[in-house]
Amino acid sequence: MIRLYHVVKSYGEHDALHDVSLTIDKGEFVYVTGPSGAGKSTLLKLLYGAERPTSGKLLVGGVDVAAIPQHRLPQLRRNVGIVFQDFKLLPRRTVGANVALALEVVGAPAEQIRRRVPAVLNIVGLKEREDSLAGELSGGEQQRVAIARAIVNDPAVLFADEPTGNLDGGMAVEVMEILQAINLRGTTVLVATHDQGLMDRFPHRRVRFVGGRLVQTSARARA
């Protein structure tokens, strides 16, 4: 599903990622871990095309993200889901409208949107809050809305950048349970985190970065 070949990402003199080669198979749940500044977020940004590598090759679902032209990026992003630490919701729109946005963008018909949005909100346990304004929800609920938006198009892969970073323990566990459930439905999930407790509680393969270098990768965990 995801292949990296000798990927380097430099900002001036500084290498944010240095000669990273990595393979993540379809349906895997992988933690990208390491201390702050290790290159976790940079790796995810390269994978969804927010940044371009300085050198090397990245394949996501067979698409060479490093070589994809700017006007083709929307196509790539429609096939991946992205979840951020700060949720990135539109607070003045309802929960349903925030989730529907990802469907509107791909030109989904209204009937499909009406059917799909409650179904996805049901998965994240927010079906009853569909008409609430996103800005009125708790942090944990907002992150669940963001996850719902990320999976509403049935992406093959889900990238989550510190999805529990702004949440307290209970809410973080809820979010991890949802991500795990999504993975069990066949979606490849890549979570950047440095929360050791959560990784121990929800054990999966870990790839550890330090100073932009991939220093350790554990074996694939059994489901």
Binding site: Y48, I82, A102
Partner: peptide, 15 residues
């Protein structure tokens, strides 16, 4: 924020 979110969920510039 709205522009950024639309970009991230796969909206084209024209959209």
């Amino acid at each position: 924020d709205e522009l950024e979110i639309m970009r991230l969920v796969g909206a084209t510039d024209r959209y």
